[in-house]
Design a protein around this nucleic acid. Sequence first.
DNA 1: TTGTATGCGTTATCAT
DNA 2: ATGATAACGCATACAA
Lengths: 339, 339
Amino acid sequence: MRKKSSAPTMKDVAQEAGVALGTVSKVINGIPVGESYRIRVEAAISKLHYQVNSYAQGLKANKTYTVAVLIPNTKDPYFARLTNLINLSLTKRKYRMLLCCTDSDLSFEQEYITMAQQNKVDGIIGLTYNPNLLINPETPFVSIDRIMGANIPCVTCDNFMGGQLAAEKLADLGCRNVAFLRTGSSLTNEPNKRKAGFENGCLARNLHYETKILEDDDLIEEFETFLRERMQNGRLEFDGIFCSTDLLAYRIIQLLSKLSVKVPEDVQIIGFDGVRLFGDLDYICSTIVQPVSDIAEMCVQILLQDTLTARPPLICLPVSYAAGGTTKEPPERPESLSG
Amino acid sequence: MRKKSSAPTMKDVAQEAGVALGTVSKVINGIPVGESYRIRVEAAISKLHYQVNSYAQGLKANKTYTVAVLIPNTKDPYFARLTNLINLSLTKRKYRMLLCCTDSDLSFEQEYITMAQQNKVDGIIGLTYNPNLLINPETPFVSIDRIMGANIPCVTCDNFMGGQLAAEKLADLGCRNVAFLRTGSSLTNEPNKRKAGFENGCLARNLHYETKILEDDDLIEEFETFLRERMQNGRLEFDGIFCSTDLLAYRIIQLLSKLSVKVPEDVQIIGFDGVRLFGDLDYICSTIVQPVSDIAEMCVQILLQDTLTARPPLICLPVSYAAGGTTKEPPERPESLSG
DNA sequence: TTGTATGCGTTATCAT
DNA sequence: ATGATAACGCATACAA
């Protein structure tokens, strides 16, 4: 499909209305102008279906009202929700959002950064993994979940507290022997603190614990071996498991079902993220809920704020716990929705 | 966070390299230039960290390499996946994507269209509901799931065939008395054909069927009443249900569990969309799978193609069926993934 | 082959 | 208050 003839410009409007260019500009920008002139210009605008050219505006003003958002993908429900909420926050402020799905690929991340800079975005929000990202210091950047350097603010949830909360919950629910399972990137980022928080909680509550962390190229089957080795007479020695993400929790639950271990009767499971079915229905599992909405809003707010003051390097937002059916409590139900 | 000093321009590069503006432009655009000049220019570019200004380019070329995508949200897993795949297709072609989450709000849809046009996007892909959307005819537009007019291509899956397939599957699985349940927008769009296809399939296979369609502001509870009325001695009179979406199927399954009706033993359920947990793990339910990847690719391809020929008004892509545990078959399992 | 000049659509600074 | 004009950064047609 090819674009048809080029769109009308301010010049066309000026000619149609029989006024000067500057007058048209003033009308468009709400600068006072003679009543009769305004009416003629407005008539010409609607007659020609004139629309301002944001590109010309951006070139002139050196401001594009555009923010690039780098995220691995929008298929994962947590990323999908985060993307949606960032979009909301940006739209609320009349900003446009350039979506950049990086697939967690280090090169793609860099390419998107370059693209965004060439596009003269007013800022970038990135949930990235590349430890050597080259970002032009003149482009404001806010990182999610990873500390990237002294001058780059990082927004995350309180991962340490989340881990601790998980341990406390398991203790409250009667567990005595628990495990922490983690998978994913070997790169250091904030979510790694979930482990330390969990261990801290276990110590405080006198819980015996063990941890198992998969390397980057390990298969999920490693966990099966790990768990099998800790079964005696068809009984798992753990009565509680904390998984670093809801995704992992889900897969572990599948695995346990294969091993005929019942959840939550035999072993209670807590995940992390607060993922819900279809975005806002039931939780997949009992989980530490990230304040996604606050994270999104905070990213946008910090990115777009004018003052250079009050720019703390790391912002940790509080997490909460939600029962989702994989612990011995009644699961929380979402408010009833129509449709 | 404020932008630091403004970025270097071609003029700065020219001065740094001691050459003329045009020469720099040529180097950047790969137009042959004297070896020594090229080297000096490239040195200046990397010294100054120069990056072209896409806005200036776009203004000059009247082309922005940007496409706006209008979608209700990215929380719903089907929309989330579609968004991801459209992003992929666009990126592959070096296009940027402006994400516009409309929340299915008719005014937001119009506002985003206006914004996109002011942004001089090269095209718009929209899954929209506003029947009176004002779209500048000079902006190429491809619609998803809704026919918007003679000059606007519409990409969708074969909804009719999907409905028919659902009926056939239920018949094959031994059902004799089935129901079709639908909810959502009262506006006419392609997915409405699922009902006709289902009815057609039921007739062909001699299945007795009943349909229940909720109005826009009805509550999901209406379905509970409907189903309760069709129970005798704790037994539901239907042995199969086709739901217009996986989301609805999921909610109906919850409802049935409340009524102590077992799925799939007492009643088999088929949904529509092909939604999977975490994007690519298990299906939520047995379902008619939309060819999301093909839909995304087709939208982009049609939108960006140069020729005005071969632009059929309606493109129906084939659907398939996947067992997801809510029918009397072993559910399909996704290929084992690492991590 | 290299440099110069003009225009893209807009805004803002001037005179008028 | 209104109209003419320069400038934003880049690409290109044209002159050197």
